[in-house]
Design a protein around this nucleic acid. Sequence first.
DNA 1: AATCCGGGGTT
DNA 2: AACCCAGGATT
Length: 373
Amino acid sequence: MQEQEAKAYFSKELLAWYRVQKRDLPWRRSRDPYHIWVSEVMLQQTRVETVKPYFERFVALFPTVDALARAPEETVLKAWEGLGYYSRARNLQSAAREVSERYGGTVPDTKERFAALKGVGPYTAGAVMSIAFNRREPAVDGNVMRVLSRYFCIEEDVAKGGTRAMMERLQYELIPEGEASDFNQAIMELGALVCTPKSPHCLTCPVMERCAGRLEGKEESLPIKTKAKPPRPEYRACALVVSEDGGSVLLRKRPATGLLADMWELPHVEFAAMGWPAAMADAAVGDALAGWLGAELGPEASGAVRPAEPVGVAEHTFSHIHWNLRVHRLTAAAAEGAPLREPYRWVDRAGMEVHPLPNVFVRLLKAEGFIPA
DNA sequence: AATCCGGGGTT
DNA sequence: AACCCAGGATT
């Protein structure tokens, strides 16, 4: 049957190509399932080149499941600072604590047990089971969806759940006996190096001859995917309050759930939540922001917070929200000695080393000279 | 099935 | 300016 030949050809040629072309990546130098696990979580929605330095630092800081389990959450978040999707770090540590307590620190080698851990979905479960334990499990990520949809000319919407399930069955069939680890890495490697999203490099592809998508001239229009909604705009006023001596900055800790959970940040407030017009002039923003922050900090500080000067606009786009931050420098001299209400805190430069901040605020503090660039 | 959850590199 | 990246949790 022609279909079976196309599948056997794909598996054989891809595996041969991978043995020659595989990249030397930090997590490929380890056989430790914990290291493979950490790498897979970091690689969720994140590029290889971005992950490399984070992975090296993370496994140096937390070499074992038990070490990660014992660490303070803030230390883990600090090691994750700048990577994004911070719930990955919190879930990974939560899962490490479960593995430490329930399995004595040994990563479970069955899909059922491993997949039950926090932050481990169908992809990560399949990836760690196949790569670390060579178990025959599919691991369908964006690369696999793209490669399979092109090679087999599958025109289903890859954003649909049913398409993913179909891809998992297909990938399972393609795994050569005893080759799950290399094969799953090979198909992802092909997607990353050759079968790229735009303008795939078909002339260097090991399975070009029998690629149905290319033979149909559809290699650039596949995979078919419904496009995401554009992020909604949020207009916010943001306070940069540096202490009189210039040594500390006013930060606050975010709530334990939702956007940027448990991270630290400069105080800010949404215009719409305060009934302020989005087009408010700088002077008015400074006054309104000072009034708001004074009330936030409590009766002792109320009235002590004063506007100083507009700093400018900082913009930051999340996948679903676009922040437009009107940043103002404020003074709060009279409030510096008074006790601060939760979740606010004065943080000095040494303290910045242990408080995890989203990149948008790190950039802001560097631009304003509070953190060395 | 939608929506929420970061940040940045490619084209 | 899109697009999308070795996705998962929540609703």
